[in-house]
Structure formats: C-alpha cells, structure tokens
C-alpha cells in the first residue's frame, strides 16, 4: 500500500508570534511538528507495520520547513521525506494545490491508496487543506477520524459527530484527516533521530500556484485583559450573576 502523509509545522509557543506594523513576524518562533500531523504519521507507520511492503512518504509544503520536521517524520518511521519548495503560501487553497501537484509528480498516474493529513494546523486552524487536497486529487475525503481499522481492502472508520459518533465503511483510495484519540504517536529517541539523519531528504520544487482565494490583510496582537470583579462569597457571586441578567435564559 502506498501512503502519503502531509505534514506541517507550527509555533511551539504561540506567544513567540509577533506583529510588526500590521504584519505577522515569525522570526522568533521555534517550530514543532503540528500535533495533529503526528497522529497522521503514526497511523501511516502503523499501517505499514500491519501491511509489510507498504511505503510511507511524508510531504511538507512549508517554505520555511525545517530539516527537523522532515527528520522527525523519518525518525517516526516514514520511508521518504519530501520538502515541497514553493513561494510563501498565502492560503489553504495554495497549500493544497502545491501538495496535490507534488503527489501527482511523485506517484504519477498511480495515486496513493491513502493520503493522511492532520485535522488542521494549530496555528491558523482553518482545517481546509485535507478536503481541498482530496478535491484536487479526485479522491473522496473523510475525517477527522478517531479510529481506523483496515483489512487491506476495506476500512472501518469512526469520527466525531455533533454530540455523538459516526461509524463509516470505506475503501481505498481515500484522503483522511486525523484527530486526537486515533493513536498515541511514538516518541522518537536519539537512536531513531541519528538513523533518520542518515537518510537523505528530498526536495521538489512546486510550480507557481494559482492566486489565493483568501488574503491576509492585517493582523494585530490581542492584549485584551478583562477586569475581574471578585466576589467574597458564593452568595455574592450568585447575586452578581443574577443582577447581570445571566440567569434570564434559565427562567424562560
């Protein structure tokens, strides 16, 4: 089975993001693999362990993608790690576009059976790339999944619904986004990282993507701090909330 995993990186500490003159300044950011993508890599590697002979290729479409990101995917067990080099990507549509192009370039006509992505990247939280990528590849999409069982031909998936759980029967090919709870990503030790360093990182260059569909116009830091009104006793608190009309809806 051929499995492609799309990964990206996010700031380790959101507070290291700065805004200068209405534009984002990410120069002081330390990057880590997007936590949701770790579930995707882990699941790919588990499938590879279940179905020997499978090949897992991790793709990172981030202009500033660090070597560490790709090496982490290798250390977790991916067979190949590819940096998709492009101009800065302005929106999810462009990110999905360069990934779709890269997947077509790597796999040719035989698209992978499975493409795994994290549910969303934790920095911007659009959660659009997986579904857009699926559309561009002409593959069905489902997610975010919290359970995946496969017998090699058919898949049984579970995903959260509003206030419940959905069970889905599916078959390949498929694009799946991964949710917390799907697995517990393995920790990578010194040994795995040293071995990953021996593998070569691949780079492919993306063409210039079509115009973005959404543009960032400006950004500002949020410095809002509410002034908290302290109550000395639960009775006082209940009184304050009542006065503020917060129990109104209860009455109705």
């Amino acid at each position: 089975m051929n499995i492609a995993v799309c990964i990206c990186q996010v700031p380790d500490l959101p507070s290291s993001v700065a805004v200068v003159d209405g534009a984002l300044d990410l120069s002081r950011v330390a990057w880590v693999m997007n936590p949701y993508d770790e579930y995707a890599v882990e699941e790919a590697v588990r499938l590879k362990e279940q179905f020997p002979g499978s090949v897992v290729i991790a793709l990172a479409a981030a202009p500033e993608a660090g070597k560490e990101l790709l090496q982490k995917a290798l250390a977790m067990g991916a067979d190949r790690a590819v940096e998709v080099r492009s101009l800065p990507l302005q929106d999810s549509f462009q990110a999905a576009w360069v990934l779709a192009e890269a997947i077509r370039n790597i796999y040719g006509k035989e698209l992978p059976e499975l493409v795994l992505c994290g549910r969303e990247s934790l920095d911007l939280q659009n959660g659009s790339v997986p579904a857009m990528l699926a559309g561009m590849l002409g593959m069905p999409f489902t997610g975010p999944v919290t359970a995946l069982r496969s017998d090699g031909e058919r898949l049984e998936l579970e995903r959260e619904a509003d206030g419940g759980m959905e069970c889905i029967d599916a078959c390949y090919p498929l694009v799946i986004s991964t949710e917390k709870g799907l697995n517990i990503p393995r920790k990578t030790g010194i040994r795995q990282i040293m071995e990953a360093r021996k593998k070569s990182l691949e780079i492919i260059s993306a063409s210039v993507p079509p115009d973005p569909l959404v543009r960032l116009r400006s950004a500002e830091l949020v410095l809002s701090r509410k002034s908290c009104c302290f109550a000395a006793t639960p009775a006082e608190l209940a009184g304050l909330l009542h006065q503020a009309g917060l129990f109104k809806t209860v009455q109705e």
């Binding site: 959101p14 993001v17 920095d123 911007l124 569909l213 960032l216 950004a219 500002e220």
Partner: peptide, 16 residues
C-alpha cells in the same frame, strides 16, 4: 478572526 491560539486578531479578505 483569531489565530495563533487567540493571541492574534487577523483580518482576512476574500479574493474570489
């Protein structure tokens, strides 16, 4: 909308 864990408020513009 809020991005980066709610620490940044960004203004986005539709282009399509």
């Amino acid at each position: 909308r809020y991005i980066y864990s709610g620490l940044v408020l960004a203004a986005y513009q539709p282009a399509a």
